[in-house]
Design a binder for these strands. Structure first.
Lengths: 355, 355
DNA sequence: TTGAAAGCGCTAACAG
DNA sequence: CTGTTAGCGCTTTCAA
C-alpha cells in the first residue's frame, strides 16, 4: 500500500483527472491531451495514461468539462425548405430547446435546403465545413449526398442523419424510426381495422409523397409485406405519388374514390394528409374508410378526434431533436449515451391516447 | 451608459452570479442565500437581489452548481415488493441509470414495500424523513398514505408519485399515464379489432388485478366508457379480480372461456397476463380472441409476436425512471423542466412496432 | 446580517 | 513533447 496520504485513488467518490495524472505520473495537461486525442504526446505517456484511466475506471465529469470549455459546441441543422408541417414541428422543437442548449454550452443554427435537389443539398452539406462541430441533416439518400457527408466526417465534423437516413454514409448516428416497421405497423392497423385476417375484403389505396424518397419507399414495402401475407382479402392498389402536397393528394384521393367503389382503406405514407381528409369529408365517406397516416400534426389530431383518421403513426419530433442534440454533444464530451433513451419509437395514436 | 469596463451586464453570454451580486450591490454569498432561500438575510438585500435577478434575467448554471455541491442529492424509491415483472423493469431501469446519476451527483436507494397494506406503506413513507431529499413512491391511493406523503412534504422532502398517483396529496409531481385514457385506448383497440362499430358482436371479458387499485379502476372505467358508447354490439362482462397473479388469472380466464362461448375479446387491466395467455393457448383460441393487455414485459412481447396478444398498452419504464430523476433534481436546482419531455406516453405496441 | 476565499473537476493558454 | 496556471460559475465554510 502506498503510504502517501493523497486523496482518492479509487476509494470514495469517483476518480478525477488529477488522480489519473498522479497515477500515470504525468501532468494534468498531458492527460487532457491524451483523452482528447490531441497530437504531440509521446507514445509512452499515452500508454501510461490509458493504463491509469482503465485502472481507476476514470470517466470525465461532464459538468466540469462543460463549465471549463470557453467555446460552445456549434451544431447546424439542415432541414427541408418549404411548408411541411412536420418539418415545422422539428423547427419549433429546436427553437424550444434553447434553454437546454444554453445550459449545455451548445449553439444551434438551422438552414433550409431544397432536399429534392441532390446537387444543391450536397453543396449545402459541404458548405458546413468549418462552420460547426456537428451537422444534423435530414437528407435525401443519394450518392452525391453520401459523398458530401463522408467528406464532412473526414474533416472531423460529426454528422447525424435525422428522420431520413443515408445508411451507406459514415454518419455517426441515425435519429429516426425504422420505416419498414412503420409500414408494417400501418398494415396491421389497416388490416385489423378493416375486418381482420378473415373478414377484411376490398381494395386499399396507398398515397406516397415520392417513391424515390427512401422512407416512403420503405414504408410502402413494409405495408405491402403485411397486407399480402396476412390480409389476402385486401387488395393493395398501386401507390400514387402525391408529392406531399395537399392539393395534389386531394385530387388523387378523389380520383381514387371515384375509380374504386370497393375501397375500404387508405394509407397515406407521406405528408399532405389534409388533402385526403378533405376528400373523405366531401365524399361523406370519412370514418367509413379506414384512413391511416403518419405524423401527429394539429390537422391529424383533429382528424383523429372527429373520426376521419383511424390511426396516426408518429415519430416524436421533440424526442428526435433532443436525441440528436444529446448525441451531438456526447461525441465531443465522450459522455455515455443510453441507447434505450435514444431509440425513437414508432408511436401509434388513436383518438384516445393523444398527448 | 455606465463607463465601468466590467464584463457582462446582459451583453455577451448569460448573466452569472457575480453579475447579479454586482448589480444588487451585495456579495456572492448573499445572492446565494437569497436564491436558495436560506435564512438570515435583510429584507432590503432580498429585494435588491430579486430585482437584479429579474433585470439580468439570471438563470443559474446547472453544471456549475452541480460541480460545486459537495454532497449528492439523495433520492429514495419506494416500490412494491414481490415479483411483478413491470416493477422488476422499473428496478432495472433504476440500476441502469447509475452512470447518469453519478454524473448528476445523485444517489438512489430502492426500498421494497408491501403496497397493499396502507398502514405499513404509510409508516414506510414516513420513515424516509431525514433519509433523503426526494422520495419517489409507487403507492396505493389511501388516506393514510396521503397523510404520510403530506407530512414528508412538510418536512421539506420532495415527493413524486410513480405509476399510481395519490392526487389529493401534496406530491410535487405524478410520473405516469392517464389511466382512464389508457382504458379508453384499450376500448378502441378491442372494439375495432373485434369488427368495428358496426360489425362487433359478442361478449368481452375484463380481468383486473384489484378494483381497489386506483389505476385498475380507472382503466376499467375508460374501457367501459368507450365500449358502451361506441360498440353497442359488444357486451362487457363484469370484471373479475385476478390479484395480478398468473395462477389466479389462468383459472379465471379458463372459467370465463367455459362460461361464455360467445367471448370475442379479453381485456387484461393489470398484471398476470401470462396466466391468461396460457389459458388461451391451451384452449386453442389464442389469436381468435382479441386479447389486449398492459405493460410490455418479455412475456407480452412473445405473446404479441406469436399472435396470442393483439396489442399491448405500455408505459415506458425507462422514461418514467429518468423523468422521476430529472424532476427530483430539478426541484433542488431550479432547473427548467420541459413538460413535453416529462409527459409519459400511452404507448401502443403491435407485433410490428416492437422496440 | 454579511463578505472573502477556497475549492469542485476540467480546459486551454502559455511557458518551457 | 510536457508542465504550470488561471479560470469556468457556483456552493460553502469561516470570519467579521
Amino acid at each position: 500500500m502506498p503510504s502517501t496520504p493523497q486523496r482518492n485513488a479509487g476509494q470514495i467518490g469517483r476518480a478525477t483527472l488529477s488522480d489519473v495524472a498522479r497515477e500515470a505520473d504525468v501532468s494534468l495537461a498531458t492527460v487532457d491531451r491524451v483523452l482528447n486525442k490531441r497530437p504531440g504526446v509521446h507514445a509512452r505517456s499515452i500508454a501510461q495514461v490509458q493504463e491509469a484511466v482503465n485502472r481507476l475506471n476514470y470517466r470525465p465529469d461532464p459538468s466540469a468539462a462543460r463549465l471549463a470549455r470557453p467555446h460552445p459546441h456549434r451544431v447546424s441543422f439542415l432541414l427541408p425548405a418549404g411548408t411541411n408541417t412536420f418539418v415545422e414541428m422539428l423547427r419549433e422543437q429546436i427553437a424550444g430547446s434553447d434553454g437546454w442548449m444554453e445550459d449545455h454550452r451548445v449553439t444551434a443554427q438551422t438552414h433550409a435546403v431544397d432536399v429534392f435537389e441532390p446537387q444543391r443539398l450536397a453543396r449545402r452539406v459541404l458548405s458546413l465545413r468549418g462552420q460547426c462541430d456537428t451537422a444534423v441533416v435530414m437528407a435525401l439518400d443519394h450518392p452525391l449526398v453520401q459523398a458530401a457527408i463522408d467528406e464532412l466526417v473526414e474533416h472531423g465534423i460529426g454528422v447525424i442523419t435525422l428522420v431520413s437516413d443515408v445508411p451507406k454514409s459514415r454518419r455517426q448516428h441515425f435519429v429516426g424510426i425504422d420505416n419498414v416497421a412503420a409500414g408494417r405497423t400501418a398494415g396491421t392497423l389497416v388490416g385489423r381495422f378493416s375486418g381482420g385476417p378473415k373478414g377484411a375484403k376490398g381494395e386499399v389505396g396507398v398515397i406516397v409523397g415520392s417513391l424515390s424518397l427512401r422512407d416512403h419507399a420503405e414504408r410502402s414495402l413494409g405495408f405491402g409485406q403485411v397486407m399480402s401475407a396476412e390480409y389476402p382479402g385486401l387488395k393493395v392498389l398501386p401507390p400514387m405519388e402525391g408529392k406531399d402536397d395537399p392539393e395534389l393528394t386531394k385530387e388523387l384521393s378523389a380520383r381514387l374514390l371515384a375509380a374504386h367503389p370497393k375501397l375500404v382503406a387508405l394509407y397515406s405514407v407521406g405528408a399532405g394528409n389534409r388533402g385526403i381528409s378533405a376528400t373523405l369529408k366531401a365524399s361523406g365517406r370519412a370514418g367509413k374508410i379506414v384512413f391511416v397516416g403518419h405524423e401527429l400534426t394539429p390537422a391529424a389530431r383533429a382528424d383523429l378526434l372527429d373520426g376521419t383518421m383511424a390511426a396516426v403513426i408518429n415519430q416524436d419530433a421533440g424526442h428526435e431533436i433532443r436525441s440528436a442534440l444529446r448525441l451531438a454533444i456526447a461525441r465531443l464530451t465522450r459522455e455515455a449515451v443510453h441507447a434505450d433513451q435514444e431509440r425513437i419509437r414508432i408511436d401509434i395514436y388513436l383518438k384516445d391516447n393523444l398527448p
